[in-house]
Design a protein around this nucleic acid. Sequence first.
DNA 1: CTGTTAGCGCTTTCAT
DNA 2: ATGAAAGCGCTAACAG
Lengths: 348, 348
Amino acid sequence: MREVARRAKVSVATVSRALRSPEQVSPATVERVRRAAEELGYVYNATASDILRGRSTVVGLVVPTSSSTLFGETIHGVQDVTAEHGFSVIQGASRYDDDREERLIASLLERRVHALILTGVTLRNEARIRRLAKDHCARIVVVWEKPKADVGISYVGFDNRSAAERMTNHLIGLGHRRIGMIVGPYSRSARVKHRLEGYRDALDKAGLPFDPDLVVERRPDLLEGREAMNSLMSQEEPPTAVFAASDLLAIGALKAARLRGLSVPGDVSIAGFDDMNFSAYQDPPITTMRVDAYRIGQLAAQIAVEPIGAPVRNYCLDCDLVIRGSTGRYALSGATDERLQTREENSK
Amino acid sequence: MREVARRAKVSVATVSRALRSPEQVSPATVERVRRAAEELGYVYNATASDILRGRSTVVGLVVPTSSSTLFGETIHGVQDVTAEHGFSVIQGASRYDDDREERLIASLLERRVHALILTGVTLRNEARIRRLAKDHCARIVVVWEKPKADVGISYVGFDNRSAAERMTNHLIGLGHRRIGMIVGPYSRSARVKHRLEGYRDALDKAGLPFDPDLVVERRPDLLEGREAMNSLMSQEEPPTAVFAASDLLAIGALKAARLRGLSVPGDVSIAGFDDMNFSAYQDPPITTMRVDAYRIGQLAAQIAVEPIGAPVRNYCLDCDLVIRGSTGRYALSGATDERLQTREENSK
DNA sequence: CTGTTAGCGCTTTCAT
DNA sequence: ATGAAAGCGCTAACAG
């Protein structure tokens, strides 16, 4: 900038003004400065500006994994809105690891992010986050989850408990009485814990017994879904329907069913959660709970870019039950056997 | 920091030293400073440090989309390696849009990133990037692509052309003579263009005619894959095998085949590219070309964190042909008809 | 309209 | 081992 000033024969202050608020400077000077900057290949230093003005135009975003089409939509939502406001996004993936998440948050704070968008709150980090919010040094937004109402933190989420209850009710309504559940790490993530609670509530209200053997906790990925399904279906009295708390697990479960020669939904129904883009493309397409991941990102970013003192905001979004081919009535067996055989021929 | 200094009754310089290089300070003072910092809830400001030292510990990463399990792996690779070196990652998604990409790169440069990791080079931005590399203001790494050798830019990629040629040869080897191709935006992305070239080369070498009607250009997503397949199979003389230049397109194509009552690979073979985690979970599992996306990210990050003056480095990785159930010999029809019918019953 | 000056939070000589 | 002072690239307040 100094060089630009010298070349344009003005002071650095004028250069700054010409570039950032041209209306304060005479057109001729603006033009001269612009040309000088151009010729020297000068690029503005946003960091220096931030530091001087004691603010920051970066937001930090922590997701469980970057390798998910779902959180990817949230990321896009965040990027689109922040970009409009001239913010950049530093992103990190916790990979479902507490230590990594902690290090990530620490490094984001050292970068002096204006806001922190966190996907969920782990039990371990909850206290810490609350302290951060207190210190008012950064805005905090929790997404994909609706924390207990009294926390005083902004969030953009939906009611995981009631959504899971609705899905379970769908299966109960189809006549299923033994319903298995495959869940992510509920001991770590409130989001997942609430889904499990919704499942239990639905069973309770329908007067069905809760059988802990029917609940399997796994890391949310395809292979784990497959293994979980195998372990469920190997039981003495296997479930007739399985509710996977994420579509990733559901797709894995579907694969396991296929390899075992089970027809879906003829022999066993499978339901997912999230409505990932892939879910409609499975065979059969997967019944799931649609969540507007992009919208979550947009709203979170809107909250994030507000000034530090702005009020806490909460959005609780709706989600939609999307009924597709992977769930069906219990016990219309009979024709199943024959279908089963050809099925095995078809699949690898 | 000033406050910490006051509380510990030392100068700011000592605070800095005590925190960053404790060996230069007496243990007692270090302890006093540490405690003071703790009590005041002081957090280090990495940005200020960067600006003073005239360097930067942030790298910029531009991917086509954040919503892809594949680029997600690359992102993880980058994050893991950069984190080890104390760098943060500002990430953006171009969404296959030139303007957005340009704005993104501009904003990253204003943040004074130490390095820029770019997924591919668009024709439009190639000149610009070359200029950036010349200016030596940031390290540039191109990933997922092997640019023309003479460019003088670091890259971590693989030979898209020869990989596509191998896949096409696989199909030819199975007896296919009419092979369709569904490609991403090859007019924009060299990566995609090379895949198309590989396909053509394979046809040429096998003495098969190139029929432009058999090549469909689409945005790489599921729905477009489905539509592309429909348009290919509606032709008067449809292909007996389809090579989709990404697994996303292949999965979409598979869905289209299913809905049309076509058996895969009985009636038509489908091959993909990338080996996304979902591909093995389709029915039938998809034959594809495996790319080590995580490794690409790791290597790119290693190059990125090197000092500005460090040499240009190039890595050309291998990829593996993974043969699964979606490709098969041409013309073993006959049994197909009957299979077809049950298939229609099964799928929704 | 433009220049001068002070200073953001930190690190690094250079003294002591 | 510690402190004083200069300065990174930029902007805001104040003068002119």
